[in-house]
């Protein structure tokens, strides 16, 4: 017993140093680890909310057809019913929020159809493709084809 007590001074010093180290670690941890870290895993929980804040630029087809009912009726049930409005008309979330803020983009009927329907060997064979050399006469496609529903009655 006495032998241990004889050495206690340096034991106390070591314990004090250890305690200081622990306190320093806890302070550094409190300062450096961001709020919410580790709630769901090894990351900041707030990063989930950060990823959500961006405002969408594509409104989605359901927003378009709320107002554009004529276009909706023409488009529904046709061969292009699976094609979203913004696939051709561009991103229009701003317009959907405030119709006066920006106008819908009117695609060029001489070129927009070729985005999809230009012939290409890598396209699925059953997909309708046009080679301008033997089909296109230089006019606008919507002169003959109705863009919203090409298989419904042809445009006069």
């Amino acid at each position: 017993m006495n032998r241990f007590l004889k050495d206690k001074e340096h034991l106390v010093r070591m314990a004090a140093l250890f305690a200081v180290g622990v306190v320093l670690f806890l302070i550094l941890k409190a300062v450096l680890v961001p709020k919410g870290f580790g709630v769901y895993g090894h990351y900041r929980a707030g990063a989930l909310a950060d990823n959500r804040v961006r405002a969408p630029r594509f409104a989605g087809r359901s927003a378009c057809i709320e107002c554009h009912t004529d276009e909706r009726d023409a488009w529904k049930g046709g061969k292009h019913a699976g094609v979203g409005c913004e696939a051709c008309h561009g991103a229009l979330a701003k317009h959907a929020e405030d119709p006066s803020a920006s106008n819908a983009f009117k695609p060029d009927p001489k070129t927009i159809c070729f985005t999809c329907h230009l012939t290409n060997a890598a396209k699925p064979r059953k997909f309708p493709q046009i080679d301008p050399k033997n089909h296109f006469d230089g006019g606008a496609c919507n002169g003959c084809h109705s863009p919203h529903a090409p298989d419904k009655e042809p445009k006069k």
Binding site: P56, F58, G60, H80
Partner: peptide, 16 residues
């Protein structure tokens, strides 16, 4: 930011 608001992704929305 879209899927958590009930929208689909921009690529799926515009895929013809």
């Amino acid at each position: 930011h879209r899927i958590t608001k009930g929208l689909t992704t921009a690529c799926c929305e515009s895929c013809p």
